[in-house]
Design a protein around this nucleic acid. Structure first.
Length: 203
DNA sequence: ATTTAGATCCTCT
DNA sequence: GAGGATCTAAATG
């Protein structure tokens, strides 16, 4: 059992948190069973200034309300009529910035994850959580977890699996996925993933 | 290997 | 009424 990430961790800018989250552990307790994995891919969403962010232009609706909570809460949203994605809210309350969790290297509860994903007879480990909606499906994350306190929560939380951040050279930086509509913001280097890690959504 | 289509529905305009 | 921080299977080169 690792120590949980402390409140301070999340009160930093989303880019800093997005990098620091790489290699840390996302844990889900699902009907008493532990499902977990190491975070290998993230994206930073910079808030009101960021055209790709759900909180762009201070848009504050029931859907994205959790983005306005203090850092360390979960923002889970539903999209494309069938998928959930989970974010880690950053900075202080009212600063609607967040980090999208895009891929995990699964470590605990693989059989149940596979069952949740329920496609092929033997889907490879590298594709269990290799995308923001895939990891939510594998871990059983849905809107009931929206607004969860990741610091004190008992169903979903984050643990420190890596004491130090990765060296810059082992992190690949690039443009975010699926936000072509965001004009100049579509090209900003706000996606981060571990170099050569086979569990990422795409290299 | 790369591209395309369809699924599917909640949220905001 | 339109479109989306996606995924999968099928079609194509």
């Amino acid at each position: 059992m690792h120590a949980r990430l402390e409140p301070q961790f999340f009160l930093r800018p989303p880019v800093v948190v997005a990098r620091a989250l790489l290699g840390q552990r996302l844990v889900r307790r699902f009907h008493g069973q532990i499902l977990a994995g190491l975070i290998v891919e993230t994206e930073a969403y910079l808030g009101p200034v960021d055209r790709a962010a759900h909180s762009f232009n201070h848009r504050h609706t029931p859907r994205n309300h959790s983005m306005y909570l203090p850092g360390g809460h979960a923002y889970v949203y539903f999209t494309y009529g069938m998928h959930y994605c989970v974010n880690v809210v950053t900075q202080t309350a009212g600063q609607p910035t967040a980090v999208l969790l895009r891929a995990l290297q699964p470590t605990d509860g693989l059989p149940l994850m596979r069952q949740h994903r329920g496609l092929k007879p033997q889907i490879p480990d590298t594709q269990l959580c290799s995308g923001p909606a895939k990891l939510c499906q594998a871990l059983g994350i849905d809107r009931t977890l929206d607004g969860t306190d990741l610091i004190a929560g008992r169903e979903l939380w984050l643990e420190r699996a890596r004491p130090r951040a990765y060296p810059w050279t082992s992190i690949v930086v690039g443009p975010r996925i699926g936000i072509a509509y965001a004009g100049p913001w579509a090209d900003k280097p706000l996606r981060f993933h571990l170099r050569d890690n086979p569990h990422v959504s795409r290299p």
